[in-house]
């Protein structure tokens, strides 16, 4: 087996100025410069972007699905963080 493929990179594209970079996929590249060029060639062929970030996939630290309950469930019952928690008189239409 020939095993010499390049490392995997994650690609983030800003589709137009004013918007955030969003993950759009991954690709292989030997170095950062190449990752950027490959991302340009692979993911912006149809005017999809004005800015690119590339990150080596191995450099990403991700939360684990098993941690989901302790990480995210506690936020579910904090209704006071949302505007609808607070009562306003009818007369005040927008606040």
């Amino acid at each position: 087996m020939i095993m010499n493929d390049w490392p995997l990179w994650e690609v983030f594209i800003r589709s137009r100025s004013g918007l955030e970079h969003r993950h759009c996929g991954s690709l292989h590249a030997a170095d950062a410069k190449m990752a950027l060029e490959n991302a340009r060639d692979v993911y912006t062929r149809r005017n999809e972007g004005v800015s690119i970030w590339v990150v080596p996939s191995a450099q990403i630290t991700a939360s684990q699905p098993e941690e989901q309950a302790e990480l995210f469930d506690p936020a579910a019952d904090k209704a006071y963080r949302h505007p609808t928690f607070y009562v306003l008189p009818e007369e005040v239409r927008h606040m």
Partner: peptide, 16 residues
């Protein structure tokens, strides 16, 4: 294509 590209992929890794 894969065989003929072997040296190219290796070269890029070596350079990196």
């Amino acid at each position: 294509a894969h065989r003929n590209g072997t040296w190219v992929r290796e070269a890029a890794l070596a350079h990196a």
